[in-house]
Design a protein around this nucleic acid. Structure first.
Lengths: 111, 111
DNA sequence: TATTCGATGTAGACATTGTCGACATCGATG
DNA sequence: CATCGATGTCGACAATGTCTACATCGAATA
């Protein structure tokens, strides 16, 4: 039975792809992650996650068409599948319920 | 160097404790998780997470004082530390930025 | 033209987190 | 005394997070 939930980083990656629309390439995902979530990760880390996410059917990719083809490898463009979006939504809802009413409490004086 | 981020389940556990205020006992945390996030987990899973969270300084616990003392073990009451709250806040902010503007997109027609 | 650089991606290893089931304690009940 | 219920502890293993090599190939450059 495959895992039922998305890990923390997996969610971030999926969300970054969604944000980038048709510009979701590995390197730009890394930049998006860094900008929006102040989260830095190596390319290896990202690719591993991308690979697992694909295996689970949460994302797809296609080699960039009619593109400059500058490197030794064709650049891959990633897109989130419907299942991926659904998983994201479920997780978001769960957290919304868990956070309900806590914002003020958490924003006030600590400890 | 200890890990910088909270895992998905760790966040949920911390949030459940916050929701329960002074009623955060292991079994009630499990119930809270199930009710708010439809997330079920065994006691073993929860205790392991609780133990790791404590090691990282994100939560504390105290044996229930002047209580009925019904079982072989004193019941433990959990509370989130200031560091725990801060970690939660950071994670929440990161996700807020990542979700920015995507709600509509995700709510609409799928795939 | 040989070297280096930049943009990609792959592979393998290992650390952290998520997950359980089995085991143990002890008062209350049958 | 055998069970049950409320607690916790342990040890094993699966899933996720993370990095450092390593490899390719066009372009820029020495």
């Amino acid at each position: 039975m495959p895992p039922r939930y998305l890990g923390e980083f997996e969610q971030m990656v999926l969300l970054s792809i969604l944000q980038l629309r048709d510009q979701a390439y590995a390197l730009s995902i890394l930049a998006e992650l860094d900008q929006r979530a102040s989260r830095s990760a190596s390319r290896g880390t990202l690719y591993k996650t991308l690979e697992r996410l694909e295996t689970k059917g949460f994302l797809r990719w296609s080699a960039e068409e009619g593109a400059p083809e500058r490197g030794g490898h064709p650049r891959r463009r990633f897109t989130v599948t419907g299942r991926g979006v659904a998983a994201l939504r479920e997780s978001r809802d769960a957290f919304r319920n868990l956070w309900e009413g806590l914002d003020g409490l958490v924003e006030g004086s600590g400890e």
